[in-house]
Amino acid sequence: MSLKSLENAAVASSGHHMIEQKLSVQFEDLDQQNESYIVGMWSFLVTEVMFFGALFLAYTLYRVMYFNTYLEAHHFLDVKLGTLNTLVLLSSSLSAALAVFYAQHGQRIKVALLLAFTCLCAFGFMGIKYVEYTSKINEGLLPDQNFNYAKALTVFHEHHKPAAGTEENPRANVAWEQLELARKANQVSFVVPKDNPETTFVESGFDNRVTSAADATARVVVKSPARERFDIEAGKAKIFFSIYFCMTGLHGIHVIIGIICMTTFILMYLTKHPAVDDYLPTEMLGLYWHFVDIVWIFLFPLMYLIS
């Protein structure tokens, strides 16, 4: 292009960095270019804030309305794993920031190593998430058609008998109490072997899956008031878990996108691809990763640490 003669492969005049940045044709100087990219990335992050914001709003709304349900349901979330996840993500944030620092100084290998560490932490995060999700699904807490709060509560209370003498929060057992009342009214019966909670779990009463019209009429069961109230509570808990899975799922998708981008960058750094001659792409990736970290910083206390 004829205007290439106007381009400067300028050494950054700021003197902060020892890396050579190339000026694109639409920009006049490097400061303009750098600031433009950073502002552009920040405006994208603003859209991401709004993206998660709606979910945070839904969460907050239902938490205020159904606080007791939340208090009870959050016990299913493992605080230890959540804390570990937070630790992992914070460490990955540090390594990402360091990667940007070294990118500004043109130290390819260090950048690649730090990004690899960040990736490793991200994988660890996803691994812990996988463990959490599978345990939830096995307990019947995935909020789809197979959502079975009765089973989950029963299993939980079998394994978590409160220690003698400790005081339980009186609000934290609304659903469980209804379930116990329903059991006394013979609306629900369970057999839970202590060693293998997944098997031999029988519930009498009613089955959500309607297979035919005839079935539908046949299944109208007169439920005891306690059973009705339990179903209402279970519905609210289903909302809690829907929001939990949506928020952590969306966050997880963002982590996976981050992993893909970081892997690409690592490969580019190792093969000296010209796209990473400039430190700016790495800085933008770093901004994205820190945003992912911030979302988790808010998610963790809100979902796991309800008291």
Binding site: E35, W42, S43, L45, V49, G53
Partner: peptide, 27 residues
């Protein structure tokens, strides 16, 4: 802490600061 230090908003220009603040306020 993450925004100011890791994401370098403290060392950024006013425009960057504006957009960093805007999203969180708007939500």
């Amino acid at each position: 802490l993450v925004v100011l230090n890791f994401m370098n908003v403290k060392g950024g220009t006013r425009l960057i600061w504006l957009w960093a603040a805007l999203g969180f306020i708007w939500v």
